[in-house]
Design a protein around this nucleic acid. Structure first.
Lengths: 302, 302
DNA sequence: CAGGGTCATCGGCACAGCCTATGACCTGCA
DNA sequence: TGCAGGTCATAGGCTGTGCCGATGACCCTG
């Protein structure tokens, strides 16, 4: 029996209980009655089979197990926050979206939620977000359907102003057990092109960028080991040891940090990729400028 | 109105619907009736205010917005998985825990869930986990209360065998707006020691390690800017621009990758820290050896 | 010893969410 | 053309979860 997301109602109450020091206070924070909060916590403990809090007449403090759970819970809630930021922006808020943005999928998935969060936190106007590939983004900006776009193509677009807002680097990753994990020398482009890899479907931004980098030095992608539909599926396959795959470093930073995946250096291939903001050359409204500035600031110097 | 965790019931059904191509299939996977699954998805769309799926007579496929949401959802579910792995191990499964492990908090929080996941995935026996600081871990191992421990101290323990299982590096991180973000030269230990920092409470493994590293070169920590109870609180404060803090790179890898936090190099201070497995010198049972091997393998070469 | 804080317990109620049954629609095959 | 097997949507009815309010026990402080 494994723990599902629906068993985790009450996780927010739990971390807030720790933060505030009492169940009652957390209940108030969540617009719940105190008995309800107590009940949620009881449920949580029952489903986990772990005592999380020691309840005293002057508040509640976590057990040591509770502290560990709280740590993991914070990660969950942070992920939920990013999802929520994205969704709020994605929501078709009627037709009155004061700032309409469109972004390519990699940007939307990995960096935009943080920008949106920062934007809202600093009192920015509501944002309406759409998603599409780089070509669609450029067209939407050109047509005025959106005021600001984010693309992951080096290509220039006539009639549009652009600014670099950071970027990423594609990395070759393998599971710790993979032969490449023990290599001493970096891979060459030739080896990489010849190897069967786990890749996204053709047309995906990440795959396009990878093929372009290979083409730059005169190579072509070999027959893939498998073609998978999503970044996450790819990661899972790689971690299961099924093979090597090429993904944005943003997608695998956590896995690399903890050693679930290993990055294999590549010698003679430039896998950096730039993210660019694009807007109508006619001039940018104040809030567009503001958002671009925010994104540029957050984009690491790389 | 922001999205809460309790609104996300149905997120698993959603990603499985995409994976399997139909709502019915996802419903079967989750032991739900098809109408219930449909209802959960409707709820999800209603609460998000976004159309996620296009339903057809031969299955359902995500909209472009749905793909973005699915990406964020995968991150959430991955975090839930790590929490679940940890909790399963934490669960007091009676007294019959075949393999009893105790770990310090940093290890338990950031790397152990992955090891547990790998352990279970490769058919390992059930694990019972306890948490405590390094001293408590060593004592528990020495007393035979647990068979295997993980500590984050360089100290040696008489009568116990140890093995390195990777490690981490403490890093100084600041928000992008912080003065240190614009520095060209690395910080010196003197500067770092003199600056008011955001730190954990005394006794925390991370703070101890930091103070030890400073002491190594003859410095002492200045009066802290604030003392906060948890890693996450610390990160939040740093991201809000309240100041600089010192944390495990494992805790901030994601934030650094996306630019929410910047790592400030430090010149003359060795902030590496080793994680060690410890077990009774009398000899390790087969499953203890197995787990240590797994952890060593997953630990990155650093 | 009162007052303000904690948490636990009980009883009652409402509604959320589940299931079964059915129907509409499309596709593929005979 | 018609049947079979798949999709999803809708309706109706029931169960049980999860909420609240009230109350009580307990502890600390003044």
């Amino acid at each position: 029996m494994t723990l599902r997301l629906e068993d985790l109602v009450g996780l927010e109450v739990f971390v807030d209980t720790i933060r505030l020091g009492s169940i009652s206070a957390a209940a108030r924070e969540h617009h719940l009655s105190q008995p309800s909060a107590t009940e949620r916590l009881r449920q949580l403990e029952r489903r986990m089979g772990v005592r999380l809090l020691v309840r005293g007449p002057s508040g509640s403090v976590p057990t040591t197990e509770g502290e560990a759970v709280a740590g993991w819970a914070h990660e969950v809630l942070a992920a939920v926050d990013r999802l929520a930021s994205g969704v709020v922006a994605l929501r078709a808020s009627g037709t009155s979206g004061p700032l309409r943005i469109m972004a390519s999928l990699t940007v939307a998935e990995y960096v935009l939620p943080d920008w949106l969060h920062a934007h809202r936190a600093t009192g920015g106007a509501p944002v309406e977000l759409a998603v599409g590939n780089s070509v669609a983004v450029a067209r939407a900006v050109a047509e005025g359907a959106v005021q600001l776009g984010f693309v992951e193509t080096p290509r220039r677009f006539p009639g549009l102003s652009t600014a670099s807002v950071g970027g990423d680097r594609l990395t070759v990753v393998v599971a710790p057990g993979h032969p490449w994990a023990r290599r001493r020398r970096p891979l060459t482009a030739a080896e990489l092109a010849a190897a069967p890899l786990l890749v996204r479907e053709a047309g995906s931004g990440t795959r396009d960028a990878f093929e372009a980098a290979l083409a730059e030095v005169g190579f072509e992608l070999a027959t893939p080991l498998a073609v998978l539909a999503s970044t996450t599926t790819l990661k899972a396959a790689a971690m299961a040891g099924d093979g090597a795959c090429v993904l944005s470093e943003l997608a695998v930073a956590g896995e690399i940090a903890t050693g679930r995946l290993l990055a294999v250096p590549v010698a003679d291939l430039d896998l950096r990729r730039e993210f660019r903001a694009v807007w109508s050359a006619g001039g940018a409204a104040a809030d567009v400028q503001r958002f671009v500035r925010l994104a540029r600031q957050a984009g690491r110097p790389a």
